[in-house]
């Protein structure tokens, strides 16, 4: 019994010693596996590279006949880009998401900021609850309202994004600590100045983060929305056409494009947020 406890303590001691070394960064390899440890950029890059290589190898060696090889997808992508006008279709889609995002941001931010006025709170609460409505049932009434086509797609995307945007932003506004308002009051600020400084400017970084999440929601809906009215084209219309003809390599190629563009938009919004709100990075925990 005594020997067992001693062994245990020794093992624990060894582990702690290695862990301490890992924490100090003496053993960079071990550090990657140490819980809660911080790794430098280079190490993080190596870890990302490792996982990317693993995934790519699994993909290339996949026995599933329904999963095209990387080469098949590359050939399909080249054909789509150079011969089938994927570029202009992508532009159409980006224009659509940009248009819908601008309208969503304007509407949602106005509604969220309106929560500072008690009179508007039920309205904002109601708008927020609309997120539980599915888009499918709304296609018909929105078609009648907008006349279909591009306007319908903008309306659907806007509806889909705005209800979530309002929910998140209204919560952020309602959670502003009372002390921030009091701080401005003791400085002698009027209520409109307090709203501008504390509610609008003070939450801008969080608003941009919510925007980032909502653009991602919108982007994930894009193929469905573009499929509703295909006349104007767009990457969603293209993928549905390729689906219809069971061109798997083309479908996967377009999926990869959707993923890459989605990530690029997400990154761009993140960079914009850091430029406009440099203070937002201060509270970020680096791991």
């Amino acid at each position: 019994m005594l020997a067992a406890s001693g062994g245990c303590a020794r093992d624990g001691g060894d582990f702690l010693a290695v862990y301490a070394q890992a924490e100090r960064g003496d053993v960079s390899f071990v550090r990657v596996f140490a819980p809660n440890s911080v790794v430098d950029r280079k190490t993080a890059g190596i870890v990302v590279g490792f996982w990317a290589a693993v995934m790519f190898t699994l993909w290339a060696a996949s026995p599933f006949a329904t999963l095209p090889t990387p080469k098949d997808i590359w050939v399909a992508l080249s054909d789509l880009w150079w011969n089938q006008g994927l570029g202009p279709e992508l532009f159409t889609t980006i224009r659509l998401i940009t248009h819908a995002t601008l309208i969503t941001s304007l509407l949602a931010l106005l509604l969220a900021y309106a929560t500072v006025v008690p009179f508007f709170r039920p309205l904002v609460e109601g708008a927020s609850k609309l997120r539980f409505l599915g888009l499918t049932g709304l296609v018909f009434p929105l078609t009648l309202l907008t006349g279909g086509g591009y306007a319908l797609k903008v309306a659907l995307l806007t509806f889909g994004m705005a209800s979530f945007f309002v929910t998140s932003m209204a919560e952020i506004v309602l959670e502003i600590p009372r002390s921030e308002f009091d701080h401005m009051r003791v400085l002698g600020a009027s209520e409109p100045v307090i709203v501008w400084e504390v509610v609008v400017r003070g939450t801008l970084d969080r608003a941009l983060e919510v925007l980032r999440q909502n653009v991602a929601i919108g982007w994930s809906m894009i193929t469905m929305v573009e499929g509703i009215s295909r006349a104007e084209g767009g990457i969603g219309a293209v993928i549905l056409n390729e689906n219809k003809h069971f061109k798997l390599a083309e479908v996967y190629a377009i999926l990869i494009v959707i993923l890459i563009v989605g990530l690029a938009i997400d990154y761009a919004v993140g960079v914009f947020r850091n430029i406009v709100c440099p203070h937002a990075r201060l509270g970020k925990v680096v791991r």
């Binding site: 701080h183 400085l187 600020a189 003070g202 801008l204 709100c277 203070h279």
Partner: peptide, 15 residues
């Protein structure tokens, strides 16, 4: 607005 107050958490405009 006529009396200055420094609260316990030293509030400042973080942005």
């Amino acid at each position: 607005g006529t009396v200055g107050v420094v609260f316990q958490d030293y509030p400042l405009l973080r942005h």
